[in-house]
Design a protein around this nucleic acid. Structure first.
Length: 470
RNA sequence: GCCCCCAUCGUCCAGCGGCCUAGGACGCCUGCCUUUCACGCAGGUAACACGGGUUCGAAUCCCGUUGGGGGUACCA
């Protein structure tokens, strides 16, 4: 088995493309075949290396390794021209003049004049080469995912294989390059179903020895409106998910379950080997679903959270590092060498609370800011009528208590009881005073890490403000 | 319009003629745990689009209807 992923360098790697790459990779690894890359850069006048690099980066991030040197479609231009000439020579293709948009009504709304087929035109201004689709008959194939698909030739227009500017079109380059690369299975999106008859017709006319590839058209990934993911409305760039704090293993894991399900029913795979070896072992392209799948960010979030929690503390810290480095308070964070240790202490508490790495800074910022950022809604809710009394009792206590989170916990609860306060309500003003928010990591661990002096300072500042506004 | 594809809980996947009073996961809801929020644990909610066949028997096969999607470029 030789499969290929054939993206065009557009500047970003589309989520749908990433999924296509993944399924090709899974199929190849399952069969012990080769997963190849071809960069379809024919349409771009200038080949930008950095745009191609983006594709490599995306695949590398996901851990999809490819075999053999990638083929640049632009490097095969000479072969494409030879193929076009041969088709012209054999009469399978012909030169054709364009029909202006306004005049198409006279030609059954076609962009070309079918009569050009017999005009024996040569090259000329604006003329393209079109493929002569047989008038009768049907082209069909047995799709690995969908079964028999057939299209009558009468429904296929004479498509362009060489543009007026001399460049080969997708149809020709795609068919020619697959033959050149020895591709045995074409696994691609459902949106390409209707070009398959053209591909087949072309391959037949080109008379390339060897078997035609088998086709498998995967279902599309759709948005909430059940439409193909679009650049305008949807988050389609794979690497944006990286920036938003998603783990590549979570992306691979989730994407694998869109249109396919592991045979043992276990969707979430936290063991890395289970993902890189287990999934390929179970994968079968023929088992892929034929109906579109909704890209459910909520489920992705869940899967990401699971993978995040499965990380060791060291790994979690490593993966969080870029997000910490991007925080506005990073300069301050770096200025105190002890902060790295403080971060490491709070991180285990953060790990069970976040679904993406980008949420990490928001959980720890209070440790590294001069003053916590106060959430006014949380403040208003927490600072009830008893807040001042409670805060001042806490200040008295905290000045004395043994400085360890279990001890703080115990002393704090004893104090709450002593004051006849509800435990939940009693901790609220203190939490807001220290972290600025009503939700966050456990209070006593946070206090312990922050230190007695700073905790007292924040409590006093809060008490002052409460009394001032009272 | 024409061509092609698709149709099981809100969502993803399982089901490949009897094991289906349809299973798992996400979501949502309830409870437990609990200093908040989470995590974890225990429950609950919810689907075979419709109509005809075929068959002793259909979510599973066939036909039609309806609905959705993709394509219809000298984009890929």
């Amino acid at each position: 088995m030789r499969v290929r992923f054939a993206p065009s360098p557009t500047g970003y790697l589309h989520l749908g493309s990433a999924r296509a790459a993944l399924f090709n990779w899974l199929a190849a690894r399952h069969m012990g075949g080769s997963f190849l890359l071809r960069i379809e850069d024919t349409d771009l006048d200038r080949s930008k290396p950095e745009l191609i690099e983006v594709i490599y980066q995306g695949l590398t991030w996901l851990g999809l390794d490819w075999d053999e040197e990638p083929v640049l479609q632009s490097s095969r231009n000479a072969e494409h021209q030879i193929a076009v000439d041969a088709l012209l020579e054999s009469g399978a293709a012909y030169w054709s003049s364009p029909i202006a948009e306004g005049d198409r009504a006279q030609f059954a709304n076609k962009a070309y004049d079918p009569a050009d087929r017999d005009r024996q035109l040569g090259p000329g201004e604006g003329r393209a080469v079109r493929f002569r689709v047989p008038e009768n008959g049907t082209t069909s194939w047995n799709d690995l995912i969908r079964g028999e698909i057939s299209v009558e030739h009468a429904n296929i227009e004479d498509f362009v294989i060489r543009r007026a500017n001399g460049s080969p079109t997708f149809f020709l380059a795609n068919a020619s390059d697959d033959a050149f690369m020895g591709i045995t299975h074409v696994i691609r999106g459902e949106d390409l179903i209707n070009v398959t008859p053209k591909y087949l017709l072309l391959r037949e006319a080109m008379q390339i020895p060897g078997a035609l590839p088998q086709f498998a058209h995967m279902p599309l990934i759709v948005n909430e409106q059940r439409k193909k993911l679009s650049k305008r409305r949807d988050d389609v760039s794979l690497m944006d998910y990286k920036d938003r704090g998603f783990l590549p293993e979570a992306m691979v894991n989730y994407l694998s379950t869109l249109g396919w399900g592991p045979t043992d029913g276990q969707e979430v795979r936290l063991d890395p080997l289970s993902l890189t070896d287990g999934f390929p072992t179970m994968f079968d392209i023929a088992q892929v679903s034929s109906s579109p799948a909704f890209f459910d960010t909520k489920k992705l979030l869940f899967v990401n959270g699971e993978h995040l929690r499965a990380l060791t503390l060291e790994e979690f810290a490593d993966r969080s590092a870029p997000f910490i480095a991007a925080a506005p308070w990073f300069d301050r964070f770096e200025s105190d060498p002890e902060n790295a240790q403080r971060l490491l202490q709070i991180l285990p508490e953060v790990q069970t609370r976040v679904e993406t790495l980008s949420e990490v800074p928001g959980y720890v910022d209070f440790l590294f800011l001069d003053d916590p950022e106060i959430d006014e809604a949380a403040w208003n809710k927490a600072m009830g009528p008893d807040a001042a009394v409670w805060l001042s009792a806490c200040i008295d206590g905290i000045a004395e208590w043994e400085w360890s989170s279990p001890q703080l916990h115990e002393s704090f609860m004893a104090l709450a009881e002593q004051m006849g306060a509800n435990r939940r309500k009693f901790q609220a003003p203190v939490r807001v005073a220290i972290t600025g928010r009503s939700v966050g990591p456990p209070l006593f661990e946070s206090m312990q890490i922050l230190g007695r002096v700073e905790v007292l300072r924040r409590l006093q500042a809060t008490l002052d403000r409460v009394q001032l506004t009272a």
